[in-house]
Design a protein around this nucleic acid. Structure first.
Lengths: 219, 219
DNA sequence: TTGGAACCTGAACGGGGGCTGAGCCGTGCG
DNA sequence: CGCACGGCTCAGCCCCCGTTCAGGTTCCAA
């Protein structure tokens, strides 16, 4: 999953990026509203963490601009403590969740997970494809209840496929959601990861749709 | 389904063509308004993605020319950010949808899908012909709920037939909508695909109308 | 009934998309 | 410093898929 963090406070931004990366997300960062708005309109993020107090263009304007432009990416806004009016405005402007600063990092992580899950259309925190089960809270993957060890990138690939199970996911789409901003287009890394996943999982749940991409089997 | 992309920015044009092809469309590209207008009037596209800022002839003129010439192909226009007047003029000129640049690729894909569905007269994202069901979002085909594996070209043929269910579709029409610009006319590939489809589907829903073409049964 | 046109189908083939094993490189850790 | 490991690249192989062709079957007109 690929995230955008729009935060001007360098310290907080670093903390967020590090922690979210450690959780296995591909994270892009924007330091002001202008950059944030541009990235949010251009790149296909799975969720955005948006601070409301920003240089150049403030967060609310960014959010409104996105929604006006039809960008439906789920957004969590960060507001200074106690500024209730901001929260309300944020929700009105199309935010999906909000968090008051200073916030608890674990809570943010939980909310991000839940948000991505909801917007991909999964009610439960566990996603299952046949015997393969992904627990979105712990990030743990099991096959028939038996845990499977995956590397960071293997996990990202599988996780994205499972969140979109039943649909064909093209190689380019996978690449875009798995790597942060700079990535190489001409390479077969995706195929390599899929190959390793298939071997590690030991079950035939990742179907290749020749010429189009990959699809996780529904049942 | 066959699409036309009219876009002068080489980078963006390549991105669009690649992605749309990966989604299973046959894509033609025009680099300026003149070429675009010609192709749009000549070839039978199922949808057009039209940039408004173009060399030689600008997008709005192209669109007006098409509509004046009776070309009813659905058109999505791409406008530079914030130029509201262009959007309004675009709609007035006969555009069916518009998107502000920079745009989100996933959103464009969704709009293209929806547009094609609407113009072929289907309200729901699922099209059914008896036991055969096509989900236009996932591209999945089922017979009596049982999924059927199709190759890319088989899928295109079936998809086009189903979008025009109940109507007779000639071999040449099929060929034109399934292949991009350069294709061979003298060949029996269509017959082969129809044959394979009939076998894979296992149901008699594709009727041949001797001398005219094929028809998907309504009920 | 017969001939021919339209259509179907099985087999074969050639190219290219996809898979994989091996090896390289950078990084983190003992 | 060296080792292990994860990420990435590359080359070669395999096999799927699109296409063609030949021969068979069905339909229609005369």
């Amino acid at each position: 999953m690929r995230l955008l963090v729009v935060e001007d406070d360098a310290d907080l931004a670093r903390q967020l990026t590090e922690r979210l990366s450690a959780e296995g997300y591909a994270v892009d960062r924007a330091g002001d509203g202008e950059e944030g708005q541009f990235l949010g309109e251009t790149e296909p993020y799975d969720a955005v963490v948006l601070d409301l107090g920003l240089p150049k263009v403030d967060g609310l304007s960014v959010l409104r601009a996105w929604r006006a432009a039809g960008v439906a990416t789920p957004v969590i806004i960060l507001t200074a403590r106690g500024t209730w009016s901001e929260k309300v405005q944020g929700i009105d402007a199309g935010a999906d969740d909000y968090l008051a600063k200073p916030f608890n990092m674990e809570e943010l992580l939980a909310r991000v997970r839940a948000l991505i899950r909801r917007t991909k259309g999964h009610a439960s925190p566990e996603i299952a494809c046949g015997p393969v089960v992904l627990d979105t809270r712990t990030g743990r993957v099991t096959v028939d209840g038996r845990p499977v060890d995956l590397t960071a990138h293997e996990h990202r690939v599988l996780s994205y496929l499972m969140h979109r199970k039943g649909q064909v996911v093209s190689r380019t789409e996978l690449t875009e959601h798995i790597y942060a901003q700079d990535f190489d287009r001409d390479s077969n890394t995706i195929e390599v990861f899929v190959g390793r996943l298939r071997r590690k999982l030991g079950v035939d749940v990742i179907r290749t749709v020749r010429g189009l991409g990959y699809r996780m089997e529904e049942a």
